[in-house]
Structures are given as C-alpha cells and as structure tokens.
Design a protein around this nucleic acid. Structure first.
Length: 806
DNA sequence: CTGGTAGTTCGGTCA
DNA sequence: GAACTACCAG
C-alpha cells in the first residue's frame, strides 16, 4: 500500500469500505457479506434471467481464468456486462477493483450504460472501465515522474507526431525526401506495438531506414521526453516499463484489480498482452481474468494484433475454462450460412459453428454493376424502396472497405435527399480548424506544448514565417526552454525585424492575457474569446472557399461540445484520447462507415459494396502480409456479413474511379467463396445493360460483354494468379517494378482515358454539353482535359469523355 | 514573407 | 481528385 497517491475521489483505499454510489447498502467489506446481503445473493437475480446456459456459465464462472469464445451475434456484450453486474451485485468486489478493458471508446461507453441499467445506475464508480489507452494514461498520470515525465505531460496526436518526427530526421542531418517521415512513424508505431524500446530494436528490422532506424527511434523518444510528451504507443509502452521497473507499483495494481475483463481479446497486440499478463499475476494463484473474443473477427493485425494471443490462452493460464458461445441471435440462416462458408476458407481457426433457430430468411444477394456510381445509384434506389415499405433508415448500413468509397454514396444521398450519417469517417478532431482551435486552447492551458505552438504561431498569417520560427526554435533548444518562453524573450530582444517582433509580441501578450482570464471566465466563453481575438474566426469568415462556412460551423460545434466539460483541462484531456465524437444520434438515417468501424454493430439491412480484387481484399494487405493478410481481409468480410440481421447485399463494380481515372476491376475472390446455396445473384438494371463477364465465363455474373471482348480479358492479371506460389511473388515484383513506367492506355468503350498525348476532338470555341454541368463553350484544350466556360458562369476543367457536342 | 501557379505524389483499416 | 511541395514574382 501507499504507492498509489490517494488523490482521486473515485478511488478509495482498498481496505476501507467504499461509500456506496447508489441506494444499495455496500457498507460491508467484500469478504464478509452481511446476512441480508447473503440473502439477496441467494435470490434469483433478475439480471440472470433470459440467458442461455452457456451465457449463464460465462457470467457465473467468476473466479479463475476464463476464455469466452464468442462468435458474431451471440450476445457477447450482454455476457460481459452481466458478468460485471454479477460481480458487483454479489459483492465480490467494489467497482474500483474491477478492471475492464475495451478497444473502442464506443464499446466502453456502451458497457457503462448497460451495467448501469442492469444494477440500477450505481456505477459512477467504475473508474477502470475503458480502452487500453485510457487506462494507460490514467496509470501513467499517477506515476509520471517514475518514467521521466512531468505531471502534466501532453499526448501527441498524429499530426504532432509527424511534425516531431520530421524535425528529428532533419536534426540528424538527413534528407527528408529520401527518408520519409511517414514511414519512420509507421515503423516506430510497429515497434511500440510489439513492446520494443529503442535499445531492443534490431537494426535489421528496418529496410528503408536500414541501420539508422533504431537511432532515429531513440532520438525521437529523447525529444518526446524533452517536450514532456508521449504518443499513443507510449501510453502502453511506458506503462509497461513502469510496471517492469517498479515492481512495488505493479504489485499495488495487482492487488487492486480483483477481477479483470478483456473485450475483443483477439485484437490485443504484444504490448497489451504483456501489460495484461503483468497486471493479471494474482498474488498467489490464478487471476480472475476473463477474456472474451472471436478469432474469426480479428481484423487489427496491421495494428500489431496477435491472433495467437487468443489461441494461446489455455497455455498461458493452465486450467483455464473455455466457454463457447455459438448460438446466434442476430442473423437469419442464409446470412449465417454465407458467412460460415466464406470463413471456412481460412486456416488455423479455433473453430466455432454458429447456429440459429431463426428462419432461413432471404438469401444474400450479389449484384454486379458497371461502375462505382451505378453501385451507389442501385443501393440508393434499393434503400428508397425499402424505406417506402416502412424500413427504418437507422436499421440500414453501408459498410465499405476504405473510407474513400464513402464519397460516391454521400454524393448520391445528397442528390436523393436521403438522410445519412457517417460513422468514424474523417473524424471531427482531425479537421484542420478543430486542431487549430484546440492548439490555441492547449497553449493557453499549457504554454510549453511546443508542437501546438508551432502549429498556430502563424495561423492566421501574422508574418511569422520559417525564418522567424527557426530562430525561436534554436533559442528554445539552446536554452532548454519551451518555444513559448523563447518567443517571449525574442520578442523583447532586438533580434527580430520590427514587424515580426511586433507580431510575436502581440501574440505572446494575447496568450498571457487569455491565461489570466482563465480563472474568471467560463471555459466555453474563454474559448470563444480566444478564437475571436486571435483572428482565427475572422480568417475563415474572410475565406470565400465553399468549405469555410462549414469550418465555422464546426468551430461552433466544438464550443457546444465543450459545455459537457467542467474545465478546459478536462476537455483537453478528453480530446487527446477520444478521437470520435458522439454525433448523429438524431433522426432516422442510413449509416455509412468502414468495415472496421462496424465491428460490434448490427443492422436489419447491410450493403457491402466494392467487393473487387485489389480493393477487397486490399492489394496492400496482400502485398505486405501475403496469406495472413488475405485471411485477415476474409475475416473482415466475415465481420461485414455478420452485421446483417435480415438482409445483406454484396456488390462489385466492373470499373472504379480512383485517382481520377477509371480502372477496370474484377470481382473479389470472396464473392466466389460465398456458398451458392445461400445466394441470390441479381442482374443490374443499369442503362449499360447489366453486368457482363469480363473475367471468366461464370454464368452467375450475367450475359456476355455487350461491347465485345475486352483486351483485358486475356491480359494476365496479378490479382488472379495464385497468391501463394513463388510465381505469384515474382509476378508481383515484376508488376511493381513495371508500375513507375507509364501504364498502357486503358480502354473503356473505345475512349482513351487521361492520356496526355491525346488529341481532342474538340477545339476552342466549340459548344459542348457536359453530363453533369450542362451547356458551355470550350476555352482551352489540354490532352483530354478541357477547360469549359459553362453558361451558368462557372469555369471548370473536365474530362473529355463527359462531353458531347451541343 | 506572402500568395499564386505548377508539378508531384498519394490514396487501408484504429486509439 | 486532393493535398502537398517547390518555385517565383511581388
């Protein structure tokens, strides 16, 4: 005892009775229940009702290591929350003695709510329910000084991290073009996910940064310490170091956490695994550790997740009880059958067989379309049809592999007037204006945050360019002081030109003034004041670009959001950790999100567009991880299918617009892996006459190509070769090597697309009609790109193939 | 130092 | 197609 500062009211010492949060009489110690409490415990607890035998077993087997293998839709969250409720209600532990780890903030939030509902809202004190990262910060904040950090350390976001890495690369005297910062960032992330500190990194690990990766990593860590900052990876890695180097601290946490629960165990990476293993070493005997997961839903390998962790559980914890939940309550027979058939193509599974008592229902439909726009059109129409028949939009989702696919749908839905919400798309806090605003607030709150300072010294433009910033930077490094302080000194000296000096002086004075006001003024008002006086809002008001208005809206939204917090500090801490914002709960809307974001959710109707080779499975996944990558993509497909309750539609396009170019695509191998018995193959009703079989002659994909045989029919495609053979790898390398060369012009309906030596059939002055923008006059011709003055006054650059003579 | 244009490169999932 | 960078004129 005694290692843990008793600085938080939500965290009473273990040996004292905890003040009950609600009406329940928790006045007794956990080890000696009173007679009345025992009587309550014997009564059939209402929360246990309605559980099936396996679920009930998973809830009631509270002691010792337990692995719950929970397939899709088997009531996993329910088991987890009921289990916690059970532990609390039967007085086995206080809320503050239960550690419950989730992967997303969404999951954590949902769990809190559901536990509250189960045991009557008395869960204010579940301080240790959260994501790995959130719990990591919490622990780190208490012991910052033990890992060379100061108390108020800051958490870098992706932007800050990248900026810092760039600086490190430059400081090492390396050419930033030859040594891409992004790559180094990715590499450092990987190391951190594997639990490797700079001294443990073998230089052979890095190819691009051969030999110097470890050195740069060390330099980066050094800079982080100087800035009193951590990145996301450190939240886990540094906690791990803390535990390793200070066993007394570790022992305190081991004693504290009487019950440990881990959600989505298949997604834990190496650091998280090591972290858990340390905490879960119960003093004498086996830990009360319950891990819940599904090896078939492991989709975060790219983040360092190790499916092995779940496969190894029984070895790690001898005598562990394994409980399988296989009764699916979500989907119909056909959907389950299709998903099962697909995932059966994976090897090395723990093997679960989901079953349902539900009807077979509707078969999974498979639709092939001409291009991505038609795909969006077809899905939009189908949604409108469903909506007309009374289907709630909230129960419809479109799940895409990559976020760029969302755009077509958004465009389509806007023209249709179909309400939709984007979940986890370009995140609120990742928007430029939000980051800028937060940077202002952060510096007011904590002036020593150099990266944020750099972000906004010259936003809006104040005439403080690279030269001035470098001066500040140098002074700060030389004196070992924050840039803010250096800037202040510089503004008082004669080092700067008068103009820069005035601008800098004004800015510093403004920040000092705002900090002074922080005491008296409410934090939301202060925020408005800062954005106003800094000229930041004015900057966007003066901006006449179309996005400026929505940026201002976002700033207002930010202020509105701040009201939920008591203080500026509390708000900033939240922002650093929680990258999503609770939004769009209002109204009946179609959901649009990535497959990753969809895990754990369910919908009556699910659309799965873009099942094309190269996109899904994603080429990069295949390139980087080969067979393992393919299997992960397949699990992602499995996750997608199993989100649907009653209706699932898979679709693929023959052509997809990427990089402004049409590229022909072939149907994903996953389409063919779906068992025919559960499928209903649709024919597109497109003006192009439906799907035609460019790839092979599978009659399921409709009639022959009405435009005749495409030259691509015979072209050897790297995508269709078997990916396991050595030949595949060679082919791939050739293909990659060939890529920098100009690709052959691609033929689509006989039109050359985006080739610069193209001779246009139009000349200046021609009257033309554009498919979207209407009538206009050609004002400039550049290959197949033409500049048109449209009759409505707009001047646009368009691709020739969208034009016809007027 | 700013603001424009021209040229280049890039697009995958998360906390 | 967008977002970033490089370069140049004011």
């Amino acid at each position: 005892m005694g290692q843990l500062p008793a600085d938080e009211d939500d965290d009473p010492p273990f040996d004292l009775p905890e003040a009950p949060g609600g009406a329940s009489a928790m006045g007794q110690s956990a080890s000696r229940p009173s007679i009345s409490e025992r009587a309550i415990a014997q009564a059939p607890a209402p929360y246990l009702q309605g559980l099936n035998p396996e679920q009930r077993r998973a809830v009631e087997t509270t002691d010792g290591p337990v692995l719950v293998l929970a397939g899709a839709g088997v009531g996993k969250t329910r088991v987890l929350t009921t289990r916690i409720a059970h532990i609390l209600a039967s007085r086995k532990a206080f809320p503050s003695q239960v550690l419950a780890v989730t992967f997303t903030n969404k999951a954590a939030r949902e769990m809190k709510e559901r536990i509250g509902a189960l045991i009557g809202g008395a869960v204010e004190g579940m301080p240790w329910l959260g994501t790995f990262h959130a719990i990591g910060v919490k622990i780190l904040r208490r012991h910052a000084e033990l890992v060379d950090l100061k108390n108020g350390f800051t958490i870098l976001d992706v932007d800050d991290q990248l900026r810092l890495i760039k600086q490190v690369i430059e400081a090492e005297g390396l050419d930033k073009d030859r040594w891409p910062a992004r790559q180094l960032a990715a590499m450092i992330d990987n190391w951190k996910n594997k639990g490797l500190t700079p001294d443990k990194v073998s230089t052979g690990d890095s190819q691009v940064f051969a030999g110097i990766g470890a050195r740069l990593y060390a330099a980066y860590q050094q800079r982080l310490k100087e800035l009193n900052a951590v990145d996301f990876g450190d939240l886990l890695l540094e906690t791990l170091r803390l535990f390793r180097e200070h066993t007394d601290v570790l022992a305190d946490y081991q004693r504290r956490f009487r019950y440990i629960l881990v959600d989505e165990y298949q997604d834990t990476n190496v650091v998280q695994y090591q972290w858990l293993r340390l905490i879960a070493q119960a003093p004498g005997g086996q830990p009360n550790l319950c891990c819940v997961g599904d090896d078939d839903q492991s989709i975060y390998g790219w983040r360092g997740a190790e499916v092995d962790n779940i496969l190894r559980f029984e070895k790690d914890f001898p005598g562990a009880i394994v409980i399988r939940l296989e009764r699916n309550y979500r989907s119909t027979g056909h959907i389950l059958g299709a998903a099962a058939g697909l995932i059966a193509n994976n090897t090395g599974r723990l093997g679960k067989t989901l079953f349902t008592d539900d009807e077979l229902g509707k078969k999974v439909s498979v639709l092939g379309v001409w291009d991505d726009e038609e795909e969006a059109r077809a899905i939009g129409e189908e949604i409108e049809r469903l909506a007309k028949n009374g289907h709630r939009l909230n129960e419809i989702a479109i799940l895409v592999r990559a976020s760029f696919q969302m755009r077509v749908f958004e465009d389509r839905f806007i023209t249709l007037g179909l309400p939709y919400r984007v979940i986890g798309g370009p995140r609120f806090y990742e928007r430029q204006e939000i980051k800028d605003a937060i940077a202002y607030l952060e510096i007011t709150h904590n002036p020593s945050n150099d990266l944020k300072f750099e972000r906004i010294v010259n936003v809006p433009k104040r005439g403080l360019g690279d030269a001035t910033i470098k001066q500040i930077h140098d002074l700060a490094r030389a004196g070992g002081i924050p840039m803010f302080e250096a800037a202040r000194q510089l503004a008082e000296s004669d080092e700067l030109k008068p103009k820069a000096r005035r601008a800098l002086g004004d800015l510093i004075a403004a920040f000092l003034r705002w900090r002074g006001q922080a005491e008296g003024v409410k934090h939301t008002e202060l925020a408005e004041l800062i954005l106003d006086e800094s000229g930041y809002t004015a900057m966007w008001q003066a901006d006449k670009s179309p996005q400026a208005q929505s940026r201002l809206e976002n700033l207002k939204e930010l202020i509105r959001f701040m009201h939920q917090f008591e203080t500026l500090g509390g708000f900033l801490e939240h922002v650093a950790l929680v990258m999503d914002v609770e939004q769009g709960n209002d109204g009946d809307r179609v959901s649009l999100m990535t497959l990753h974001a969809a895990k754990g959710l369910e919908f009556e109707t699910v659309f799965l567009p873009g099942w094309e080779e190269g996109l899904f499975p994603h080429q990069r996944s295949l390139d980087e991880s080969g067979l393992a990558g393919l299997e992960e993509e397949r699990r992602l497909a499995y996750v997608g299918l199993t989100r649907g309750k009653r209706r699932v539609q898979v679709s693929f396009a023959q052509n997809r617009r990427t990089r402004g170019l049409y590229q022909s695509a072939s149907p994903s191998r996953f389409v063919d892996e779906l068992p025919e018995a559960h499928l209903d193959v649709l024919e597109s009703r497109s003006p192009f006459g439906g799907v035609y079989a460019t790839m092979g002659s599978d009659p399921r994909y409709g009639r022959a190509n009405p435009y005749g045989k495409s030259r691509f029919d015979d072209a050897p495609s790297p995508f269709t070769t078997s990916y396991t053979t050595p030949g595949w790898q060679r082919a791939q390398e050739q293909w990659k090597a060939a890529r920098p060369a100009r690709p052959p012009p691609q033929t689509i309906e006989g039109t050359l697309v985006a080739s610069s030596d193209h001779v246009s059939e139009f000349v200046e002055g021609d009257r033309v009609r554009h498919q979207k923008f209407g009538l206009g006059t050609v004002s400039m011709v550049d290959g197949n790109k033409l500049t048109i003055d449209f009759d409505n006054g707009d001047r646009k650059r368009v691709i020739e193939s969208f034009l016809a003579r007027a």
